[in-house]
Amino acid sequence: MMDKDQHIDAQAAKAALKDIESSQQNLQKAMRLPVWLSVFSSLSYGLIVFSWGMTEHENLWALGLYIGLGLFLASAALAMYSSKLMGLKANLIPKNKSGLLFYLVSVVAFGLLVLGGRTLRLEGFASAPHIAAFLSAALMFYFQYWHPAGEMQRIGADDE
């Protein structure tokens, strides 16, 4: 309960925090993309990483890079369009600490996979682009499915 001096007891504070959590979880669930769109988007991202890892002057993998990029951008545009129809717009730029941390983790993880796949292949590890593409696609799907709002807190984390 809140008294005249705007103090509440620990139980009421706990209940309020739970309400906040519940509201944010419901919103994250509403933001989650359809599975087919997440799979499509993740595979097209995997194609970008793989093609980048395999591209040389004497092969045509650069074409795969452009096709993957086109498909990935198309899936992102479709996701934004369907969200707008529903009446919600996700944060594209992080606006709190959790979002900023998630953004940094994503940039580092995807950056390492993109650069690692190509660099290791040039060093002689021929399967590196395959592994990097698989891990990138899996990570992209994981992030889209469990962190659709682009924040560290994942859906359902409180239920476990």
């Binding site: 509201s23 944010q24 994250q28 509403a30 924040e151």
Partner: peptide, 21 residues
Amino acid sequence: LQICAALSTSAELEFKFLKEQ
């Protein structure tokens, strides 16, 4: 409190969507 919580997780929400939430 719930309105602010939902808005803090997003850039913008539409009136009807918020009403349903």
